[in-house]
Computed example of a mutant assay.
Amino acid sequence: MASAIYSCKECGVDLNLSPHYLFPAEVYFEAGNKGTLSFSAIDASKFRFQKEDKIRPFFETLDYWGIQRKRTKIICNSCGRLVGHVYDDGPPITDGPGQFHFGPSQVIPRAPRYRFKTKALTVSPHT
């Protein structure tokens, strides 16, 4: 796996995101992947987190929509730019058959997924 440095496009600070924790682009998530990079873990000291709870219709993808959106904003600690969101649609935390044996559902706790907008990042090869 090629190593890369992910920086904030606004201020240029290294966000210390490890390609080791990057989900492959073809992995399916309810909230989608378009125009984003998703990580399973990040260095929380580089960011501020702000809870967001909106009650209004929203559409993530053609097939994924809802009325109440609960997510957390990821904000660059250095300049205050919004760089992404935390979603709770990562891999299931427990390895089980799911509710009524239908597989993972909202009832089963899921790992957080840190979804960064590609237009908010600068990606450069590690030298």
Results as ranks from 00 to 15, higher is better:
residue 78 S to V: 06
residue 105 S to D: 14
residue 107 V to A: 13
residue 51 K to V: 09
residue 69 R to M: 04
residue 122 T to I: 08
residue 77 N to P: 07
residue 100 F to P: 05
residue 102 F to G: 13
residue 126 H to L: 05
residue 87 Y to I: 04
residue 63 D to E: 12
residue 51 K to A: 14
residue 45 S to A: 08
residue 108 I to G: 11
residue 73 K to E: 07
residue 102 F to W: 12
residue 113 R to C: 03
residue 59 F to L: 12
residue 67 I to M: 14
residue 95 D to A: 08
residue 108 I to E: 15
residue 87 Y to F: 12
residue 118 T to Y: 05
residue 68 Q to A: 03
residue 57 P to H: 08
residue 67 I to E: 13
residue 73 K to Y: 10
residue 115 R to T: 10
residue 64 Y to R: 04
residue 93 I to K: 14
residue 103 G to C: 14
residue 90 G to N: 00
residue 46 K to P: 05
residue 109 P to Y: 09
residue 99 Q to G: 05
residue 125 P to I: 04
residue 105 S to G: 14
residue 49 F to M: 04
residue 74 I to T: 01
residue 79 C to H: 00
residue 46 K to E: 09
residue 99 Q to Y: 10
residue 82 L to F: 12
residue 57 P to W: 11
residue 46 K to A: 13
residue 90 G to F: 06
residue 104 P to W: 08
residue 47 F to V: 01
residue 106 Q to S: 10
residue 125 P to S: 08
residue 42 I to T: 06
residue 50 Q to H: 11
residue 124 S to L: 12
residue 79 C to Y: 04
residue 61 T to V: 02
residue 81 R to C: 10
residue 86 V to G: 01
residue 119 K to S: 15
residue 79 C to P: 02
residue 100 F to A: 08
residue 105 S to K: 09
residue 83 V to R: 02
residue 101 H to L: 12
residue 96 G to R: 12
residue 120 A to I: 04
residue 65 W to I: 11
residue 44 A to Y: 12
